[in-house]
Amino acid sequence: MRFAHDTEVGLNAAAELVNTATGSGTGTELLPDPPALAAFLDAWGFTGDRAGDAAELAGVHALRAELAEMWDADTEGVVAVVNRLLRDGQAQPQLVRHDDWGWHVHATEPHAPVPHRMAVEAAMAVADLVRAEELDRLGRCEAEGCGAALVDLTKNRSRRFCDASCANRTHAAAYRARRAAG
């Protein structure tokens, strides 16, 4: 199934945000300070006002923990998180067009706090998965010791690893095990 561009970006940005936490396969905090958050926001094309301070970073760190819940919950649990994020973020969906993007949905005002905008973007994207009965697109990396959040947008639902390094490491270990056994 193919999703709207803003849905796919929202899902992937949410997974990447979850994976910035210590223990999400990296062992290192990947959003340690406001400049790192600014770089993350730029990389994912988040528009609107930014405070660029420690309070904004703390809000994003709190959001990250809430988003991580969706990768480990059943449908009812995911729906509860999505509804809470939409409600707390005061979602008001509207069509917008900016930069290189065509028409897409923003559900917050550009001056809303960054954590609210990020929460609502992720919640709107996951809501599309729920409505399409495609929540199995949210997964965890199968590489030993990783467990990073991932979004499987492949046609045949075959994504098992968060990135090529986890896939290569797993496949190399399996090859070595087969060689040792035979």
Score class of each variant (00 low, 15 high):
Phe3Asp: 00
Ala13Gly: 13
Ala13Lys: 04
Thr28Lys: 06
Glu29Thr: 10
Leu31His: 11
Pro32Trp: 00
Asp33Gln: 06
Ala36Cys: 06
Leu37Thr: 11
Ala38Leu: 11
Ala39Leu: 13
Ala43Ser: 11
Trp44Ser: 12
Trp44Ile: 10
Gly45Tyr: 02
Gly48Ser: 03
Gly48Glu: 06
Arg50Cys: 09
Leu57Cys: 12
Val60Ile: 14
Arg64Lys: 09
Ala65Gly: 15
Ala65Thr: 14
Asp74Arg: 00
Glu76Thr: 15
Gly77Cys: 11
Val78Pro: 12
Ala80Arg: 14
Val82His: 10
Asn83Glu: 15
Asp88Tyr: 04
Asp88Glu: 14
Ala91Asn: 08
Leu95Met: 03
His98Asp: 08
Asp99Asn: 08
Asp100Glu: 05
Trp103Asn: 00
His106Val: 10
Ala107Trp: 02
Ala112Ile: 10
Val114Asn: 09
His116Thr: 12
Val120Met: 05
Glu121Cys: 07
Met124Pro: 00
Met124Ile: 06
Val126Gly: 04
Ala127Glu: 14
Leu129His: 07
Arg131Phe: 00
Glu134Asp: 12
Arg137Lys: 05
Leu138Cys: 04
Gly139His: 01
Arg140His: 14
Cys141Ser: 11
Ala148Ile: 00
Asp152Ala: 08
Asp152Pro: 02
Thr154Tyr: 02
Arg159Tyr: 05
Ala164Met: 14
Ser165Ile: 06
Ala167Glu: 13
His171Arg: 15
Ala172Gly: 09
Ala177Lys: 15
Ala181Phe: 02
